[in-house]
Simulated assay, not measured.
Amino acid sequence: MADDKKNVGRDRGRVAAGQAYELNYFKRKHGLTEDQVRKII
């Protein structure tokens, strides 16, 4: 699914908890477990 190009810059600081690739990136970047990431988000 393509991103809505009208929303550029509005939510770049957020992590989409429903997207596995974003959770994995956040997990690797910060050295966390999946459970820790889900608690944070």
Results as ranks from 00 to 15, higher is better:
residue 32 L to I: 02
residue 2 A to V: 05
residue 10 R to A: 10
residue 20 A to Y: 04
residue 29 K to D: 14
residue 30 H to D: 13
residue 38 R to H: 07
residue 6 K to L: 10
residue 32 L to E: 01
residue 6 K to M: 11
residue 17 A to T: 15
residue 17 A to H: 03
residue 32 L to C: 08
residue 28 R to C: 06
residue 32 L to S: 05
residue 24 N to Y: 07
residue 10 R to L: 14
residue 14 R to W: 06
residue 25 Y to R: 13
residue 36 Q to W: 04
residue 27 K to W: 05
residue 16 A to E: 14
residue 10 R to W: 02
residue 27 K to E: 11
residue 33 T to G: 05
residue 33 T to P: 01
residue 22 E to S: 03
residue 35 D to E: 10
residue 39 K to I: 04
residue 16 A to K: 14
residue 18 G to E: 12
residue 8 V to C: 03
residue 15 V to P: 00
residue 34 E to L: 11
residue 36 Q to I: 04
residue 33 T to Y: 09
residue 24 N to K: 08
residue 7 N to L: 13
residue 12 R to H: 11
residue 15 V to S: 00
residue 33 T to R: 02
residue 34 E to T: 05
residue 8 V to I: 09
residue 37 V to Q: 00
residue 11 D to S: 07
residue 41 I to M: 12
residue 30 H to E: 15
residue 16 A to W: 13
residue 2 A to F: 06
residue 24 N to P: 00
residue 10 R to I: 09
residue 1 M to W: 06
residue 21 Y to W: 10
residue 30 H to F: 15
residue 33 T to C: 03
residue 24 N to M: 06
residue 22 E to P: 01
residue 30 H to Y: 15
residue 17 A to F: 12
residue 2 A to W: 03
residue 7 N to Q: 11
residue 30 H to G: 12
residue 20 A to L: 06
residue 5 K to G: 01
residue 26 F to L: 12
residue 39 K to F: 07
residue 33 T to W: 01
residue 38 R to V: 07
residue 9 G to I: 02
residue 23 L to F: 01
residue 2 A to R: 10
residue 28 R to I: 03
